[in-house]
């Protein structure tokens, strides 16, 4: 049974979604995260055990990313495999037997319409076991504030593409902090740097999805 969850972990690390998925090439034709989760649950492996195996898989791919051995596409495949597992674990979440790590509210700030970077971060964070609330693009500070109100204890992520919209990002950070000083905020996007993030009063900055996950995991309550 251990073996079953371990195999799922490998599928997560390698981004093997299901049997028909041709990726990765050396696992073609083999069962993927999808099939293996179904059978593991049938054999009585607990959802918790499956999830912790998945976390190990996600952690491993994250480490490879950190060493520049893999890039965003591999992270996306792992996130996709993770989603396949989650589809089968959903009933356990709904019944309260298994819990998401926490809530992550993300959006592209007011005046900005660039969403690809934000989407990638959202996908990978979700794949790492967080509930993601994606507010979309051109999001006004008031909308972030209501989302924080509705999702108490959430962590907020802000994205921006240009230096002009980074100004709105700084405003968003201070407006959220004025109402909810305890809310952790991480910022990202092409023009950001760690220094700029600190200057605008954010709690974290990451140039990529993996760093975002590391920040979130560090801030687990």
């Amino acid at each position: 049974m251990n073996d079953a969850s371990e195999k799922i972990g490998v599928c997560i690390e390698r981004g093997k979604v299901n049997k028909s998925s041709p990726y990765p090439g050396d696992m073609a034709g083999q069962d993927g995260a999808d099939e293996l989760t179904v059978s593991a649950l049938e054999w009585g492996v607990t959802p918790d055990k499956i999830l912790s195996a998945c976390n190990i898989g996600m952690q491993r791919i994250g480490e490879k990313f950190g060493r520049n051995e893999v890039f965003v596409p591999e992270l996306l495949m792992s996130a996709k495999a993770m989603n396949a597992v989650m589809t089968h674990l959903k009933p356990f979440f709904q019944s309260g037997n298994v819990k998401a790590k926490g809530k992550f509210v993300i959006g592209t700030v007011a005046g900005d319409l660039h969403d690809i970077g934000k989407n990638l971060v959202a996908m990978v964070v979700e794949g790492n076991g967080w509930e993601v609330i994606d507010l979309g693009v051109d999001v006004k500070p008031s909308k972030f504030i209501s989302a924080v109100k509705e999702n108490s204890g959430c962590i907020v992520g802000l994205s921006a593409l240009l230096t002009t919209t980074m100004v709105n990002m700084a405003k968003t950070v201070s407006e959220i902090k004025a109402v909810y000083p305890g809310t952790k905020i991480i910022v990202g996007g092409a023009p950001l740097t760690y220094d700029k993030a600190v200057k605008m009063g954010a709690d974290g900055y990451s140039p990529d999805p993996q760093g975002t996950v590391e920040f979130l995991n560090k801030n687990l309550l």
Partner: peptide, 18 residues
């Protein structure tokens, strides 16, 4: 197109299109 691919769950192709 990229946005549409993302929404359909074809995230890898959506990313490549972008």
């Amino acid at each position: 197109w990229s946005g549409e691919l993302f929404r359909r769950g074809e995230i890898l192709m959506g990313y490549m299109a972008d």
